Computed example of a mutant assay.
Amino acid sequence: MAPTDARELSRHFFRRLQSLEEGTREYQYARNTLIEMNLSLVQFAARRFRNRVQGGGLDMDDIIQVGTIGLIKAIDRYDLEREVEFSTLAIPFIIGEIKRYFRDSTWSVHVPRRLQELRVELAKAQEALTDVLGRAPTVKEIAGHLELSEEEVIDGLVAANGYTSGSLDMGSADDEAQSSPNRSSRPLAERVGGVDPAMELFEDFHTLAPLLDQLDERDRHILQMRFGQEKTQAEIGVALGISQMQVSRLLSRTLVRLRAGMLSV
């Protein structure tokens, strides 16, 4: 269907769709007709990704199917009253779905095209040599089979690790191999990184903030001078016109109140 004809008929079916009750047979017919009439938008958007499809070993039919999901979402959200061409809304939805598909099903990190292609060659070579040797081939044997240097083979093997990413909640292969039926493997998240010593301090500040807001202005001012400006109790007393003993009592009372408030959270 020509784009001009599709636009005119689409307006008619969108008006029809708005007057029908969702879930009825008539509504579903109008919706399916809109999908069929606007598949050219999906094909147009998918062509922009042709090189990525070919380079990633993907199927264009899968890209069309994914793009159609975006088209359906656009149809369900389109509003004629906004006086915006449907294609203006639909194309971003379609492209968004396709990009999401590439993000979820292709390389987890950016890897040069040369190394992406080498990954496929390495996989084939490893399979062929394993059949011949009866064991996993060495880097030197793979390099000889592919007529490459050992450095190139190593680069390809390292780059292949970027094709998929693992969850931090998963245990490692070593854990699974060594674990007994009664022993669960520790997830990677428990074995990498470390505890940030500032995290506990952050949590304390987060808890303390609303408690400070409950203090009167004089108590907050005393805390500011004592801990913010690092003044002595005598200096605070002079600034406020009270004795050092009074400052000590006020400060102790305030700290007890704050400590009790933090412990009760």
Rank of each mutant, 00 (worst) to 15 (best):
G237Q: 06
T68W: 05
N182M: 09
I95S: 07
Y27R: 12
E81M: 01
E176W: 15
Q54P: 00
A6D: 05
R48A: 13
L208C: 04
Y78C: 00
T4M: 11
Y27S: 10
E26C: 02
I35N: 08
A2R: 13
F86I: 04
I222N: 08
S40A: 13
E150I: 03
S149D: 11
L157R: 09
Q246Y: 02
V195P: 00
S167L: 13
L118Y: 07
V247T: 08
E85V: 01
V265D: 11
R113M: 10
V132I: 15
Q224F: 15
G156F: 08
N161G: 15
S10E: 01
I91P: 02
D204Y: 12
P197T: 03
L58C: 04
M1F: 04
F102Y: 10
L17E: 03
M225P: 00
S243T: 14
R191G: 08
L258N: 05
S264E: 14
S149A: 04
R135M: 04
M199W: 13
V195Y: 07
L17W: 05
R259L: 11
Q246C: 01
D5F: 13
G57S: 11
G55V: 03
P112K: 10
R186F: 07
I142G: 00
G193S: 10
S19E: 12
R186V: 05
L211G: 06
E36A: 15
T88K: 10
Q65R: 13
F102Q: 09
G55Y: 08
A198F: 10
L255A: 02
S105H: 15
R114Q: 15
F93A: 13
R52F: 12
M262W: 04
L251E: 03
A198Y: 09
M262L: 12
G156D: 02
N51T: 15
R220N: 09
P197I: 06
E200I: 12
A128H: 09
Y163P: 05
I142S: 00
I75M: 02
R82G: 01
I154K: 13
L133K: 03
L240K: 09
E200C: 06
A260E: 12
Q244P: 01
T138W: 02
Q229C: 02
G166M: 12
N32K: 10
R50V: 09
I75P: 01
H221L: 13
E21Y: 08
I75C: 02
S165L: 10
N38L: 12
Q178C: 08
